[in-house]
Each structure stands twice: as structure tokens, then as C-alpha cells.
Amino acid sequence: MSRFSARVEAISISGIREVFEAAGEDAINLGLGQPDFPTPDHARRAAVDAIEAGEVDAYTSNKGTRELREAIAAKHARDGQSVDPEDVIATAGGSEALHLAMEAHVEPGDEVLIPDPGFVAYDALTKLAGGTPVPVELREDLTLDPAAVEAAITDETAAFVVCSPANPTGAVQSPADMREFARIADEHDVLCLSDEVYEQIVFDGEHRSPMEFGENVAVVNACSKTYSMTGWRLGWVTSTTDRIERMLRVHQYVQACASAPAQYAAEAALSGPQDVIDEMVGAFAERRDVLLDGLADMGLETPTPSGAFYAMPRVPEGWVDAVIDRGVVVVPGEAFGANGAGHARISYAVSVETLKEALEAMRAATRATR
């Protein structure tokens, strides 16, 4: 008998983490998937006040506090979506929300269609649920083509994943695409799992959710990127009542409830002033343009990212290693799937000054690998 399960043996440590560990301590890190801004003061204060008032010493409801779920529902209402607070589960970040959705919907042997390149967790969480990830190649502009998704659906397909704005590409799906994804999910009776954690960080176009257009959708979101709260580990999942009930069965055993202090902070972030988002998005837009101009000057082709805080240029062989050797961490595209080969993911969640310093290292690497 094997000492470890086949499911866990099918996955490995993320390639992103391997790059971090290989880099020097003083390296400029353009591999991090988190904003470089502080959590809003009113969110921090809400957590401190709740701690000092003794309101966080016990479990909350499995789904999260009623007040937090009402704040999440109100956020969706601002976006033109109707969500019942009873159909929300507060989770330990968006990662747990993805895990719940996979565990509740994927049988051993089921297929899950995932974007390639795409966020590393989609492949791993599918395998942990006993499923088979099926990569779907992206368009030239690095968006996911609904026609390609529909063509890949088989009798074994349980779900497909959409991420917009996308990690690792920064691509934003059009409203027409999102409507098509919803149609595909409904007509083929499969789940559309929509990862929307970067939804507020959009520079060009607009974010729309497939939840607006269909029933067979589960939306994963979090405070992590929008409010710079990655360390607080507070996300949520919302879907139809029957799907939420099944996901709750998993959540109550693996997590019980999300961290109580984080729930109070998230409620305040969602309900309080939202101008911090505009300030952050404005800064990211400026950095994006600095990065794109620098990459263009090197002759590197980069599809223009319309959201998130990543760019994914096409790079020469050996470029990533050459950049890392020069003290700048970037992530090889193949860490996000086979179709990411020949690309690199660059996070511009650093200051303009730091970005310009990193670009000098990239220029030297580009000269050395051409």
C-alpha cells in the first residue's frame, strides 16, 4: 500500500514558489501576486475594535457573520447582481472558495476545463478532487475563447474555469464572452466556475460576471486584491442555493468558519469608502504603461493587459533565468501551463522606481539571450 494518496502525489509545489526560493534575498520581486499597498485603515480598525470588544473569540456561523454576508450581497447589488446573503459562504481566501467548488462538483474521473496558461491552483485543485484537468489554449490576445471551451466539453466534463481579469495574463473577457460562458454552462449542464478576485482592477473595457447571464455559475471572490488584504485570508463563494449547500458541507469540516477578525475587517472594507480602489487602480495603470513601454523598447511582444497587475511578454529562450541571474524575479510562463512556454509573467505590483530598475536588468537579459 502506498504511504501517500495518489491525489496528493499528482501535484507538486508551485513553480512560482520554486522561483522565489531560487532568488537571492535582495532580488527585486516581480513574481508576487499581491498589491504593494496597505490594507485600508478602516478595515484594520474594524478588526482591532472587534478583538478589543471580545467579539472574535468564538466561532462565527459556518457561512460567516450575517453582517459580512449582507455586505457581500450589497457589493454584488452595486454591481447589478442579485445575491441572497444566505447563498454566500465566507472562506479562507479565494483559494478555499475554489477548493470548495471543486470538491462539491467534481467526481473521480470528471474533467475540468481550465485556461492554459492559467492560475496554478486550477490544475492542482482539480487533481485533489480526483478530476482530470483539461487545458484550453487561449486566443492570441490571451483571452479565453468560449468556442474553444464549448468544443472541449465531453460527457465527462463537470466544470470549466473562467478568470477575468486573469492571472497570469491580465486579460479581461468581453461582456459577450461572459454571456456565452453562461449559455454554455446552462446548455451543457456544467458548472461555470468564475474566478473574479481581480474584478475591480480593470484599465480597459469592463468586468462583467457570467452570473448575470445564467444559473449554472459559481462566483469566487475575495478582499485580497481589491483591498490589498492577501494576508487576511478572506474570500467568498456565491451560487445557487443547492450548490452553496453542498459547498457548505465541505467548508464546515475543512474550515468551520473563516477567521473572525478577518470577517470584521472585510465587512468594513466592503461597506466603507471605496476610493482606495481607484487610487490603487490608477497606480497600477501607470506602472503597466511604464512596463509595456520598456518591454516594447527591448523588442519583446506583449499583449496589452487590460486588468489585474500582470503582463505576459513573449521572451527568448533562457530569458527568465537571465533576468533572475541579474537580481529580478519573474515567473516562467510554463509554471502556468504548457501553453505558457515561451512567455514570462511579470507582476508590476511595485513602485515605478523599482520597476524602472528591474527593466534595466531585463534589457541586459534580452541582449544576452538574443
Rank of each mutant, 00 (worst) to 15 (best):
S2H: 03
A6D: 15
S12K: 12
V19T: 11
F20W: 11
A27Y: 01
L32G: 09
P35E: 09
F37N: 11
P40T: 00
E67V: 13
R69K: 12
I72E: 13
H76Q: 05
H76T: 07
H76R: 09
D84R: 04
V88S: 02
V88W: 04
A92K: 13
E103D: 02
V106T: 06
D116T: 11
K127V: 02
L128N: 03
P135R: 06
E137V: 11
R139H: 01
T143Q: 05
D145H: 03
A148N: 04
A148P: 03
V149W: 00
E150V: 09
I153P: 10
T154I: 11
A158T: 13
C163S: 13
A171L: 12
S174A: 12
D177W: 06
D186W: 05
D189Y: 01
L191G: 03
C192D: 02
L193F: 07
V202N: 03
D204F: 04
H207Q: 03
G214E: 15
C223N: 09
Y227W: 15
T230R: 05
G235C: 05
D242P: 03
D242C: 00
L248K: 15
A266H: 06
E267N: 11
L270C: 08
G272T: 11
P273V: 08
E279N: 07
R287I: 07
G294Y: 14
D297C: 07
E301C: 06
D325K: 08
V331P: 10
F336C: 06
G337C: 01
N339A: 14
S347D: 10
T354A: 15
A361W: 07
T369E: 15
